[in-house]
Design a binder for these strands. Sequence first.
DNA 1: GAGTTACG
DNA 2: GCAT
Length: 203
Amino acid sequence: MASLPEGFRYLPAYLDRPAQENVVEQIRQVVADAPLYVAEMPRTGKPMSVRMTNCGLLGWVTDREKGYRYQAFHPTTKRGWPAIPRELLDLWDARSGYPKPPEACLVNFYSDEAKMGMHQDKDEVDLEAPVLSLSLGNACLFRIGGPDRRDSTTSLRLSSGDVVILGGAARLCFHGVDRIYPGTSTLLKNGGRINLTLRRVRR
DNA sequence: GAGTTACG
DNA sequence: GCAT
């Protein structure tokens, strides 16, 4: 029986349905300004199955040439990212336990076929701040291990409205999304799943 | 190695 | 389908 790392917090059904609908509307506005795009793996240029965009002062991006990084503008439009919606800033204030505001909100859109390989979030300078994640739409099978890629892992089904926080020892633990469960939510009319992750990037 | 696949 |  594998155990979850210290600092991992799971808040099931943290947002009720009206609150989820509210956030989805805010994210629709973000996407209207900063369109979803297909990110590329460093060096190989292989496309990721997840489509992404960001809001906040900084956004996490990746492409073949420059690899993983944070930057202040959308890779396609070259415009600055839209602001993080107030509801998400409030969520951070309520649950992160961190005094400074988040600078980045990565918006990952998973089609019903999309996956995310096991990885660490380690492109932030400030690794003391937790990463706070909100799931919207179809459920997924989330998996988290330890700080070493070979560490044993635990799988967890995340549903719409669930919040997960990676802080403390969990902050640098490998994690990923093995599958989406199609048709498990009516929140998004066209299916799929949205994951929002709030991060503090700079000290 | 933020992908892909193969094997129990 | 799920763990690795």
